[in-house]
Structure formats: C-alpha cells, structure tokens
Design a protein around this nucleic acid. Structure first.
Lengths: 338, 338
DNA sequence: AATGTTATAGAATACGTATTCGAAACAATT
DNA sequence: AATTGTTTCGAATACGTATTCTATAACATT
C-alpha cells in the first residue's frame, strides 16, 4: 500500500496540488505551509511515484544503454562510467545486452522506447542499420558509442579507428615484423571495418602483401578466435605477430600461443585494441591501442544529456573522433632472426 | 507526438476500451473487430506506452540490479546472465553501481523503489544492513546475490564461502605452504567475513598461526592491494603464497610479484576466488575457487521472478548455499625448499 | 472604510492505459 | 412473437502526479 500525495495532503491539511508544488519547489507557497508539508513528508517517509510523475511530465529520467556484450571488460568499464555520470545527473540506466545480434538490438530499441526512456546510447550497431536513421530523423535523443552507421549523421563518439590500426601495424613493422596476422572481428561494424582498412592500407604502405588466410573476420567469440589462432600458429607459414581488434581477442591469441608453448614476445608479438584495465596488469602487459574509454564514455553521456535537456542547439549533430594512442608494453618485440 | 490507443480506436472505428482488450488478448471480442484493430495497429505501427500501462497495472516489468562494481568481471559476467534471463521472462534491468559505498546503495534502493521496479537483486551489501530487513518484512521482492545479512532471512543465493576458503587453504597447505598471506577484502560483507573465518580456522586446523600482518582487510582497491602485496613481498618474512578473496585482487598480487621479479608459481603461489572467465585464460591460468556464477545468477533471478509472480508459496524464504569448487591451474605449486 | 493589488491555495484537468459494469445486439428457445 | 440467454462493445472510472486557472485571503494604499 503506497503512500500518495493525497495522504500527505490530508496529514498536512492542505490540498494535493499544494503538496505537489512543494515537491517541485514552486515559488508561490508560503513558508509556513511549506513546512507543514515537508514535515508530513518527513513523518510518513513519503517518496513520490516516479511512474505517475513520468506519466505527466513525459520524462522518465531513465536512459537506455545497449551493448553487444556486457561481460567484455571494455563494455563493462564503459558502462560503469556511463552509469556513474548518469547518476550524477539524476538518471538511471537500463542495460540491454544484444549478444551482438541485430534482431536483439532491434527489440531492445523497441522496448526501451516503449518504456519511454529519455535517450539511448548504442554501442554495438551494424554499419548498415536503417533503424537508427529513422530514430535520428524523428529527433529521438540517441548517441552512438564506439560505433557509427554509414550514411547517417547521428551523434557519435568513436575513436579514430583507422589511425589506431595504422599505429599498431606501424609499431609491428617498425620492430621488424613482416608477417602480421589480423583478428578483425565482425566487419559489419563500422569500427572494425575501419580498423580493417587501416590494417590493409598500412600493410600496403610498407610494401607488405595482405594474406587473407591470416585474417579472421568472424564473430567476437573467444573459442573461435582461439581455434583460428591455434591453427595458424601450427601452420608452416606461421605469422610472427598478431594484431587483434580487441584486447579480449588478443588474450585468446595469447591463450592459443601458450597452449602451443610459443612464448610471448620472444616468438610471437601481440597487439590488442581497447586497453581494458586488466591489460595494464604487469603480469599480462598487453601492448594495445587505447580506446580512451573514460573520455569517450563521458563525452557520449554528456552529449546525450544535452540532447535530452536541450541545453545546446541540437541543430547540428556531432561526430566525434578521438585520437588513438599506442601503449607499448611487454607483448611486442623484434621477431626472432632465422 | 506519440500514438495512443485512441488513435487506433478512431482508425479502427471502435472504442478505446476495445483496443485495450485486443492488446491484452481478452476473450470477449469478435474476430472481425479484433482484426480491424490489429490492422490499425499494424498500419500505424503502434506500441503501447509502458509508463501508462505501469500506472494502472502496478507493474513495470523492470528489475533493479545493484552491484558494487560493474567493471569487476565477476559482477559483469553475473549481470550478463541475469540480464539475459530477465529478458527471456520479459523484464528489463536497471543497473546501479554503488562503488561499494553504503550510502550509494541506500540511494539506489530508494530510487529503484520510487521507480516501482518489480523486484531487486542486491549483490554487495554490508552484513549489518538494517534496510534490507525492513524491505523484506514489507514483502518487497528482493534477492541477495553473493551476499547475506546477519540476522536476516531474506532470500539469498551465495556460495558456501567458508568451505571455499578452507578448500583454498587446504590446497596450499597440501602443497607444503606454511606462510600464507590473505587478501580478505572488506569484512563488512558477510561473504568476505566468512571467507576470513574459513581461512583462519583452516590455518588452525593445520596447526599454523595467524599473522595479522599478512592479512589485508581493506577495500577492494587494485592499487591498495598492489601496494600491500608489494610491501609484503619485500619483507624478510615474505610469504610463499597468497590467497585472495577475489580474482581481481589475485591479479593485483600477481602484478606486484611481477614488478618484484618474483616468478609464479616457482617463487610464489597465488589462489583467487570467483573464477572469472579471464582466469581460465591459459596465459594467466589462475588457480581459484569457483563461484559458479552461472548457477548462482540463474537461481537468483528465478527466485526473484517467482517472488514477483507469486508462482510459488513465498511463505518461507530460501537461503541457498552452493558448493564451491577449487580449480587448480598454474599459479600454485610446492614452495621452494630453502 | 473602501478599494485595489498581490500572495497563496485549491478545484479541475490531463497524461495513456486497464478494467468493471451495464447496455445493446444477437441467437436460441418456447 | 415473446422470452430468455449469450456475446460483444463502450462509457465510466481509476492509477498518482503536475499544472493551469480561478477564487479567495491577505495585505497595502488612499
């Protein structure tokens, strides 16, 4: 049995409207009656019903966050920042996990909207999604995080993925590597696709030829990447280095290498992408391209809030590209001379 | 400008009530009119407003999940399971991150309840919390995950933490270790407290004395645990092994060992707790006590749903304790003989 | 004291849906 | 044709709050 404003009104001996006014800090209410009301609220420990409130204000103070896989530390760490900043601004966040499935994403958007969330941050969306364009045209507050859709001008915050991949390849080539395998991940994502382009063109720049047998462009599945790497490491044309498009997948590569008793970095160099916090662990020490998730997450959230609260001219949407940074640790070195 | 049932009613040439009835699959509506309505819904792409719906049904189909730190893989992986299962049952979940702060937790509960979530799973709560008792007495659907409150009989799903700690110590002693440091974590949590008891009594059982200088009972802070370990590893009475109450903290220990150029497991054995998925990585290979998060998370969610939907006699609440399992990998071995 | 002015409180309404209950339409039975 | 029984539909209402607009009380001014 919930308490309502009417209960407070009765106890404070005022009308329901007045209670509502003190709840919302209206100016036109005498100090003495305000006190009567706050006392009653205090005494009965009343908290207003957000649902009813949303009903009339048309605001839920709830955001949606759609991620491909919340158990991936990159997403989890991003989510933590987003949740924290959202909380500061008075918003809660509903997290939807899509398992990188487009239909799940579609449904997630649907239910979030029917729940009237005030805005959505989407972090894993195919570069060809039609849905986003429509939402964007409708003026629904939406920000893409670490992803972007081709031909769409929705607000987005991403890393300069192309540059990031180039940095990684430059680093490996600089160390003397000529045979660089690539764990691309699903190229349906624009981010991974851009990294792929970066990889390809960086190879070209250095006069190296692309060997598609050395490129994995399947799902972000630990086991599959492990198997791919294991097999490749058993082949006669074994690469001297791997560049993986996510730290998690880099770990899968390292896992496979460990199983094959191939030591890192002496016999194999590995570069990741994300710089998830565990990668900094001295015991792991993964060389990686930093996503700057703190900045990205904060920027994405701020942008979303400003769209919702219309604190800035939302006429033009912004596509932010942050500068990547290569963090060299201990999984890369010059290859063995033969 | 949202569509409402009234718009559908107008187009289908029926009353609003009828539209509502077909939306909720009422029996008493003729097939022909049902079709008129569904056609209109189809045509206008109408989706009912969940907020208004919640207003009258008193259900939000939303759950709250309160965690201490979503970036901790144990929580993130648990959250993934909970979110997935919830989605299957038609629920979304709002995640609150407390940073292990009691006041934040208090606020999180407050706002979740004012948002009328149908139930809450709490995963990090002090063993002395008064708040939970009240909620439980009020009959609010709540399940404690990986935590429990002293003197409270709320529904809970935990590991047998005491046994888990004993398993770890037994393993280390069995290998020949006599000097076992302990990273306890905050003992305000019943789970960590129980692990502490397990550690203490297992030592006693083996005739070893407890050295409080070798016990860390501060926050779950990577840096602090790193420093503690680093210092301890520099002391003359350096332990031959560490038992950490979380895999993340075990990694901090390993990190410190790596910095001190102490090799694992030759010079130092480390046992964790949680079995987060990355611990299985061959490159890391952390020996640990498995939390069985898949089971725990699924059980917790099922219990919560059944509380909400009253599918079972909720008269008696259940305190589930799962059996822990020690997973031996490559961070433990016999200590060096002097 | 009468008038005008302002500060304050409350009545009424809206938000979008679910649900009850009575009315109407129809079918079946005599 | 009259009666009864059965479907089917819609009017009315409730959910808990915010907000507008009007009425009144309080006060100031002359």
């Amino acid at each position: 049995m919930r308490l309502t404003v009417h209960d407070i009104a009765r106890v404070a001996n005022v009308s329901q409207a007045t209670v509502s006014k003190v709840l919302n800090n209206y100016s036109g209410v005498k100090e003495s009656t305000r006190k009567k009301v706050t006392d009653a609220i205090e005494e009965l420990k009343f908290t207003p019903d957000s649902v009813a409130r949303s009903m009339v204000t048309n605001k839920t103070n709830t955001l949606g966050l759609i991620v491909g896989d919340i158990s991936n530390p990159f997403f989890a760490e991003s989510a933590k920042i987003i949740i924290g900043k959202a909380q500061e601004k008075g918003y809660d966040v509903i997290i939807s996990n899509t398992d990188h499935d487009d239909e799940n994403l579609e449904n997630a958007i649907q239910t979030l909207i029917s729940k009237r969330v005030d805005g959505i941050i989407i972090s894993s969306i195919s570069r060809s999604s039609m849905r986003i364009k429509k939402l964007h045209e409708n003026g629904f507050p939406i920000v893409l995080y670490n992803s972007r859709v081709e031909g769409d001008s929705s607000n987005s915050v991403v890393l300069d993925n192309y540059r990031g991949a180039v940095l990684a390849v430059d680093h490996l080539v600089g160390l003397g590597h000529q045979n660089i395998a690539f764990i691309a991940g699903p190229t349906k994502y624009l981010t991974t696709y851009e990294r792929y382009l970066g990889y390809r063109e960086a190879l070209e720049k250095h006069g190296l030829v692309l060997n598609t047998d050395h490129v994995y462009d399947g799902e972000y599945d630990y086991r599959k990447v492990y198997d791919f790497s294991y097999n490749l490491l058993s082949s006669p044309d074994r690469p001297t280095s791997f560049f993986a498009t996510s730290d998690q997948m880099a770990l899968a590569v390292m896992d496979a290498a460990a199983s094959r008793k191939i030591s890192i970095p002496q016999e194999l160099s590995v570069v990741g992408f994300d710089n998830m916090s565990i990668s900094a662990n001295a015991y792991i020490g993964l060389t990686t391209v930093s996503q700057q998730k703190e900045n990205m997450a904060e920027l994405a959230l701020k942008k979303l809030i400003s769209l919702i609260e219309k604190t800035e001219s939302d006429a033009l949407s912004i596509q932010l590209s942050l500068k990547p940074e290569l963090i060299v640790r201990k999984t890369t070195s010059a290859p063995n001379k033969k």
